[in-house]
């Protein structure tokens, strides 16, 4: 699979779940740039990722054909990506894994891992995301950077890090907001990609084991 195309998939997730500025979002969702993203999804699907093929063919991904505008993305984040509300769906991994006390809470083990990883790789995270290093935007941003640097490390990271998005998707679906389907679609692409990466990783391990026998 094309590493740059995989990076682009994570770029879009990064921007979508922590909308930063109008120009950046418009650049990402302009006709040609967005076509490039959709093309990246299809290329990955054709490149032996049948799961993604199925996902792309499903009606749920119609939302991807027409990306939300920046104001819609910003408003969605203001309603749902902020904490403490009944319609909160804050995209932080710790909130979707049971902590030491058995209950999801900020600053779980995933946050500690991501914090240490970012520090050891000497990377910087935007200030507003520093306290939640396991925010999906940070994880996706790191995935994108890794795909542009070392595909095999990126695959390793992606296969470990994004399985929580399945539970997070359930939280998104439960929101009373039509725009949720756009964000669900972004998640669906990532989940399909993750499954593909994990399958290929298991196949590779199986082959190695067969050779050893």
């Amino acid at each position: 699979m094309d590493a740059e195309k995989k990076a682009l998939v994570f770029d879009v997730v990064c921007a979508g779940f922590a909308p930063a500025e109008l120009d950046g979002w418009n650049a990402l969702t302009g006709f040609s740039a967005w076509s490039e993203y959709l093309d990246a999804c299809e290329t990955i699907a054709n490149d032996e990722c049948s799961v993604l093929t199925d996902v792309l063919a499903s009606g749920e991904l119609m939302a991807l054909r027409h990306p939300l505008g920046f104001e819609e993305v910003r408003a969605f984040a203001a309603r749902h990506f902020t904490g403490g509300l009944p319609q909160s769906a804050v995209p932080v991994e710790s909130l979707y894994r049971a902590g030491a006390s058995g209950v999801p809470a900020y600053d779980g083990i995933s946050a500690r891992y991501m914090g240490d990883l970012i520090s050891s790789m000497e990377l910087d995270v935007p200030e507003r995301l520093v306290s939640t290093p396991d925010h999906v935007a940070v994880e996706a941003g790191l995935a994108a950077s890794l795909y542009r640097s070392d595909e095999s490390l990126a695959d390793s990271f992606v296969s470990e890090r994004f399985t929580w998005l399945a539970d997070y998707r359930l939280a998104l679906v439960a929101l009373h907001d039509d725009d949720r389907m756009f964000f669900c679609a972004l998640i669906d692409v990532v989940l399909a990609l993750v499954e593909c990466v994990r399958s290929r990783k298991h196949e590779a391990i199986s082959e190695i084991n067969l050779e050893r026998k």
Partner: peptide, 14 residues
């Protein structure tokens, strides 16, 4: 967008 060798050396799986 690109992480150099030094940064990559700091990578550790979960």
């Amino acid at each position: 967008g690109v992480i150099g060798a030094a940064g990559l050396a700091g990578y550790m799986s979960f």
